[in-house]
């Protein structure tokens, strides 16, 4: 029992033994939830290192029980899925799409947020309200008209088309988050920079941007993962001729639905980058996910 619970004990409350027993169902419940929440992913990871015969011949949990049977373990699944099944290529394309699709909206949103927060021009409040209002437009509302323009001008299937599409769809949230942060920078800091002769460009790049790193990091992580994990925008604007991790994995499910040695290792390749970010930057990750939950 934690010390928090003890301070709450009132005279005549339950004895320590009763309290310990009362905690048992709770612990049991949490244990069951934890099993359901971790087993599926663990099963995927374990199976991705088992041979095709081993996967089809016995459950992955049996593989774990007979861990010492080394004939079942292999890394061949990864070699196969990375090269023969194009996953390495997809990983590379995903990186080339995701990095600019994160940097471009952050840059545009930061400039816009700076202008709205610290520069004087007519209509800036209304502009901000409109931008935030665009958060409510679901992605589906944008796909068909943009695709028609893309097809007409040959932008479909290009990196640039993907960067700009993700930029457009990510901008309302980015502006909303960065404005929330940039507008709280103390007025005296901005004004003294101005008094010292700093141009707007200088106060933005040398003062506002460095001060906004926490907000930028939260949004960057959210947007990076959103783009990395996105399937819809990629299917519509990038197609499957050149693979990225999500479209490739979805195709593998369609064409090789029972080849679990390929699917498990392939799925793990698509998950590795998000998992590294999750474990190394957990605090920013949680913040970014919470703030990003309103994305349209």
């Amino acid at each position: 029992m934690s010390s928090k619970a003890q301070t709450l004990t009132v005279v005549g409350g339950p004895t320590p033994l009763q309290r310990t027993l009362a905690g048992v169902p709770i612990r049991l419940f949490i244990f069951v939830v934890l099993v359901i929440w971790t087993m599926p992913t663990l099963g995927l990871l374990v199976s991705s290192f088992r041979t095709q015969q081993a996967i089809a011949g016995s459950g992955w949990w049996q593989g774990l029980f007979n861990f010492a049977d080394f004939s079942q373990w292999t890394t061949a699944n990864y070699q196969r899925v990375l090269y023969a099944d194009q996953m390495a290529n997809a990983f590379f394309n995903s990186l080339l799409i995701t990095i600019p699709s994160t940097v471009i909206p952050i840059t545009m949103a930061a400039f816009a947020a700076f202008a709205i927060a610290w520069m004087v021009f007519p209509g800036r409040q209304i502009l901000f309200v409109v931008i935030v209002g665009l958060l409510i437009v679901p992605l589906q509302m944008a796909l068909i008209p943009v695709l028609r323009v893309y097809t007409r001008y040959g932008i479909n299937g290009t990196y640039l088309g993907m960067w700009l599409a993700h930029t457009g769809f990510g901008l309302p949230l980015a502006t909303y988050m960065l404005y929330g942060y940039i507008s709280t920078i103390p007025k005296s800091i901005i004004e003294s920079a101005h008094a010292d002769g700093a141009t707007p460009w200088m106060s933005f790049t040398r003062l506002v941007l460095p001060l906004s790193i926490p907000a930028i990091a939260s949004f960057a992580i959210f947007q990076f993962l959103w783009v990395w994990n996105d399937l819809l925008v990629a299917l519509v604007f990038f197609g499957t001729r050149r693979p990225i991790v999500t479209t490739r994995l979805a195709e593998l499910v369609g064409s090789r639905g029972q080849s679990w040695h390929v699917l498990t290792s392939g799925a793990f390749v698509t998950m590795i980058v998000p998992l590294i970010i999750f474990f190394s930057l957990q605090r920013y990750f949680v913040r970014g996910m919470m703030a990003g939950s309103v994305k349209g």
């Binding site: 400039f111 700076f114 021009f121 931008i131 437009v137 944008a142 068909i144 943009v146």
Partner: peptide, 27 residues
């Protein structure tokens, strides 16, 4: 100082217009 706010806003406004406002109406 009068021009610069529009310069800083322009890319974001154009992107939002082309990728959200116009397509939503068109849809």
């Amino acid at each position: 100082d009068r021009v610069l706010p529009y310069v800083f806003m322009a890319p974001a406004v154009l992107a939002l217009g082309f990728y959200i406002v116009w397509p939503a109406i068109n849809t």
